[in-house]
Amino acid sequence: MKERLIALITEILQVPEGTVTEKTLMEDLEAWDSVAQVMIIGEMETRLGISVPLEEAMEMTGVADFLARL
């Protein structure tokens, strides 16, 4: 699951494989803006079946926060 999540984030950010790691933070990557953030949350729900509540969505700051949801 961890790998799938990182692959999903990599795909949405359109960055080379390996760019996104467990430690990557939103602020580390230019591509990870608010649109990408919303897409990641949406795709997590659609593809991985993991729902991030609306009120917590904007508190997610990096890969670690997402991994904590798994």
Binding site: I12, S34, V35, Q37, V38, M39, I41, G42, E43, E45, T46, R47, S51, V52, L54, A57, M58
Partner: peptide, 19 residues
Amino acid sequence: ENSFSLKTWYLGKILHTGE
């Protein structure tokens, strides 16, 4: 069901799923 997402709509007015 696979085309629209309320979650992304509410978060960022993104109506459509990634697919």
